[in-house]
Design a protein around this nucleic acid. Structure first.
Lengths: 131, 131
DNA sequence: ATAAACCCTGTACTTACATACAGAGTCAAG
DNA sequence: CTTGACTCTGTATGTAAGTACAGGGTTTAT
């Protein structure tokens, strides 16, 4: 007999904190098994996979709320999931654009800062203050 | 005599919420003028510029904590500010890379989803579940 | 002169994603 | 059979950047 998959072993297997497991249960994105009258809850092995799924989806930039929706849709409705992925993709593309703008601005500021080294005022501060 | 710059007019001029002004005061990133025994606080016009500075710096991706540091450094230490901007730039570049990875992954998933339309399983779900 | 609009202080609430802790119960190893 | 490690429930705390509100006081417009 192998050890029963109690919350501690589950957390270890899924590489998350015990408190995180409880938190996901509170959110309803993983099931909480019935508690036996005496003893501890035992989790099915799939719960490990489910937490891994959640963590991978987070790395893809999905929020827990979005992940909850993905999980509700479940298998078999591939189109819905694809559409959500497409929305997310559009959002990510916008984020990249915004960050590239920011990058250009910072670059310009840093360059003018170096060029203006002798003046008493800081071009970066100036650029922020002067509207 | 023009109207005294009370918190409401200040907020309007700087295009922020009154509560935001109070919040910034609590954070210590803008000064709170002395309250006269009777009547309301009156703000100097520079406070409008300061809030504008904060808002512009936020748009550049600086957190309020980072902005507080910028403001502490103040003018005259251009090098320090430039170095902070350079750190921020490096961070932004990393963010862009991460998002581009995410974008590629999402794209791949969406394409495989469309290609595999007939199978019963969703490639996106699979890719998340299987490891 | 009175009512609407504004200010003051202090505190509580919001979202997202957890993390921590108290006080009790349970299990497993020596 | 005791002790240390684990689990349970419920609640509180943490961050970031605000927003909201209660119950007062003050000012301004009519």
């Amino acid at each position: 007999m192998s050890k029963p998959l109690t919350i501690g072993f589950l957390a270890k297997a899924a590489e998350v904190n015990v408190e995180t497991v409880r938190y996901y249960q509170r959110l309803g994105i993983i099931d909480e098994p019935e508690k036996p009258l005496e003893g501890y809850r035992v989790y099915p092995a799939e719960t490990v996979d489910r937490i891994r799924f959640i963590k991978r989806a987070q790395q893809l930039g999905f929020s827990l709320k979005e992940i909850a929706e993905l999980l509700e849709i479940g298998d078999g409705h591939c189109d819905d999931i694809r559409i959500k992925a497409e929305h997310k993709l559009a959002h990510v593309e916008q984020q990249i654009k915004d960050l590239q703008n920011l990058k250009n601005t910072l670059n310009t500021l840093i360059k003018s800062c170096i060029a203006d080294k002798d003046t008493s005022h800081c071009p970066i501060v100036d650029s922020l203050v002067i509207k």
